[in-house]
Amino acid sequence: MIKVQQEDFDVGAELAALSRDRHQVGAVASFIGLVRDVAGDSELSAMTLEHYPGMTERQLQKLEAEALSRWPLDRVLIIHRYGRLLPGDQIVLCAATSAHREASFEACAFLMDWLKTKAPFWKLEEVDGEGKWVAARQDDDAAAARWQTDKTNVKQTE
């Protein structure tokens, strides 16, 4: 399930809904991304997330389908916010449910790594009243690249 929204989300309620009445699920792995109060060496006052409406949903749906095809998952959830956020605010929630933990953990890491290089969002950091676009990180490209090998043979050993 994909949600691209301005409003905040309730992690507990979202995760509970993901596995409610799904008794085949034994593992729920999740990641929550927050706005930090630093931008380089400066104090960040706010961060505005811009996105490409339509393409964002399309790319996240492709990402969800890719995760479901690579691992034996029950469900995938990605919630990503846009608009002006403050330090401490939640930006993104990513979760994967499955019978066993290995698939959930791996799928959750995969979703975040690919999201960071494929979902059309751009961060504008506000420092001392000035806005500055965040540059893409090579670390993120490297993190995403590690999933380009064949990862479809995840064993269920637990």
């Binding site: 997330l49 393409m55 999201l115 751009w122 965040v134 540059a135 893409a136």
Partner: peptide, 10 residues
């Protein structure tokens, strides 16, 4: 057609 910088979400 859309043009944009490398993405920085997440």
């Amino acid at each position: 057609i859309a043009f944009f910088p490398p993405v920085t979400g997440g």
